[in-house]
């Protein structure tokens, strides 16, 4: 499957502000991701004054963050701090929640994904998601991984086989399941099921992988496998991970954002956040003096 362009997200070729096709000469000559940097890393996702409301409750307050490309960014904070809401806003998963409203911008490669005319299905192909609880379909391992490519119109059996093998290899699961691709994914262990879900997300060639507590329900060995996998995946993908496990955030991420009461309190390199954070609130939270 060919690599996706951000412009594929547009159902109608629209400009982020006006809803019209940006003229070729008006588009940045150099992709934004190559211009903006954070600690020397190009930026893949930028949020600007991002707020999310659930009815009258504001879950996210004016969050401005630059998420570097091909790196792991961890989002930490106590329950209800807005980190999952933030994650879900990066591929418009909040759209499906009744009464949810989003203000501000989320720019992926410089394009506002909340602009009119954005194809949300294409957006979610570009920015795949892995959830806390592994949720394989009650289908075979093969069909789980082939689901996305089929949805995007690929029917050729040999192409699908190739895609499935590639995705399972990227998810570090191929060796464990290659002889039983026809068996139900539900027969696998929890850790294997989670890697099926990661393979499913990777099978459609995303550029961004969003992970919401991907290892919280797993035993230490499966957790270690997922963490090693994340470390491998960041060579090719921009990864954003929500985790309650601070040691995990410290182990797997390059950048960390600390959220509290819907606001981004501090964002920086993981080394900085976990050794010498600037804000006392961050210090108190990560040393367990908070609450």
């Amino acid at each position: 499957m060919r690599t996706m362009s951000v412009l594929d997200m547009f159902e109608f070729k629209t400009d982020e502000e006006t809803g019209t096709l940006p003229r070729k000469e008006a588009r940045p000559k150099t992709p934004l991701s190559q211009i903006e940097t954070h600690e020397g890393q190009p930026i893949k996702i930028m949020t600007r004054n991002l707020s999310v409301f659930y009815g009258i409750n504001q879950a996210l307050i004016n969050v401005t963050m630059d998420i570097p490309q091909k790196a792991v960014t961890a989002l930490i904070g106590p329950s209800g701090c807005g980190k999952s809401t933030f994650l879900r806003s990066l591929n418009r998963m909040n759209d499906s929640i009744l009464g949810a409203r989003t203000d501000g911008k989320v720019l992926i490669d410089g394009i506002n994904i909340y602009a009119p005319g954005i194809n949300v299905v294409a957006l979610r192909r570009l920015a795949g998601m892995v959830f806390q609880k592994s949720n394989p379909f009650p289908k075979s391992i093969f069909d789980n991984v082939a689901y996305g490519p089929r949805l995007h119109g690929i029917q050729n059996a040999s192409v699908l086989e190739e895609l499935v093998e590639e995705a399972l290899k990227k998810a570090a699961l191929w060796e464990e399941v290659k002889d039983r691709l026809g068996r139900s994914a539900l027969e696998l262990s929890g850790g294997q099921q989670q890697r099926v879900c990661i393979a499913r997300a990777l099978a459609v060639n995303p550029e961004i992988v969003l992970m919401d507590e991907p290892a919280s329900a797993l035993d230490p060995i499966s957790t270690a496998k997922i963490e090693e996998l994340i470390h491998e995946l960041k060579k090719n993908y921009t990864i954003v991970i929500v985790t309650h496990n601070m040691q995990q955030a410290a182990r797997v991420s390059d950048f960390t954002g600390y959220f509290y009461l819907g606001s981004l309190v501090e964002f920086g390199t993981t080394k900085k956040i976990f050794t010498t954070p600037d804000k006392k609130e961050t210090e108190d939270y990560i040393t367990g003096r908070f609450g």
Partner: peptide, 9 residues
């Protein structure tokens, strides 16, 4: 304890 920040320092 796997300390962080001030605890680690």
């Amino acid at each position: 304890g796997q300390p962080m920040a001030f605890d680690l320092r």
